[in-house]
């Protein structure tokens, strides 16, 4: 129950930051419009823009709650409820954003595999939220966190696909799925993408939990 309350209130908090929310929602659109003439590029760039938007939003929301979290723990909430609730809200918001952009892609580009395009968008949101929270856990200050996310997205965008660096990037799965969606590649691309996304999610969500469990740990003092 605590996780659901945290999720609902996190969503409400984000919903009230209207200007920031509008900027975050429209960010992927600029990525898309600038590459609209090139079908494959535009969808990949859209996904990368979404990844950047959702992870940045998560980063700021997690950092903004830094003062409240220890008090919630002290009041009785578990780390899993606090962190899980927030991730749940931002993942759900990201999936809603993904659904809207998927509708745009389907209407504008008519990809061969629309269901795979939907999977690509949803997977972007699902991976981006824990990545943002992991960066927030590692770099507690917002500026450092935002710069780190910018670096990741820049490397992701510029790295040559066959290189090891590209494979190690958190959103490499989007490139693979993009090839499957747009270029009609074989199912191997799909499975590799799913495996990579699952591993990335586990590392990011698990890392976030581990770091916050350590940071929000409360030593059990004996009763007098």
């Amino acid at each position: 129950m605590t996780a659901l309350v945290v999720a609902a209130l996190s969503a409400r908090e984000v919903g009230r930051r209207r200007v920031a929310l509008a900027l975050m929602v429209t960010l992927p659109l600029w990525f898309y419009l600038l590459r609209r003439s090139a079908e494959g590029q535009s969808v990949r760039m859209l996904a990368l823009g979404m990844a950047w938007a959702v992870s940045a939003l998560t980063l700021f929301v997690v950092n903004a709650a830094r003062g409240v979290d220890p008090r919630l723990r002290l009041t009785g909430a578990s780390t899993l409820a606090v962190i899980g609730g927030r991730l749940l809200a931002l993942t759900a918001g990201g999936i809603a954003l993904a659904a809207a952009y998927w509708a745009l892609v389907v209407a504008d580009q008519r990809p061969e595999r629309p269901w795979a395009a939907a999977l690509m968008m949803a997977l972007t949101a699902v991976v981006a939220a824990p990545l943002g929270s992991l960066i927030a856990a590692l770099l507690p200050r917002e500026l450092e966190g935002a710069l780190a996310l910018l670096s990741i997205c820049a490397v992701q965008m510029l790295a040559d696909p066959p290189t090891l660096v590209a494979h190690l990037m958190p959103f490499w799965s989007l490139r693979e799925l993009g090839t499957y969606v747009i270029d009609g590649a074989d199912a191997g691309y799909l499975w590799r993408a799913l495996l990579h996304a699952a591993l990335t999610w586990l590392i990011c969500a698990g890392g976030t939990y581990a770091l916050f469990a350590w940071r929000l740990r409360l030593p059990r003092y004996p009763e007098p």
Binding site: V5, V6, L9, E13, G67, T75, G76, A81
Partner: peptide, 17 residues
């Protein structure tokens, strides 16, 4: 406290905890 929440929402949040 969380700046973007109301007092009532804080009560709900801390009550849930």
């Amino acid at each position: 406290t969380a700046g973007w929440l109301t007092a009532d929402e804080h009560f709900t949040l801390f009550g849930a905890a």
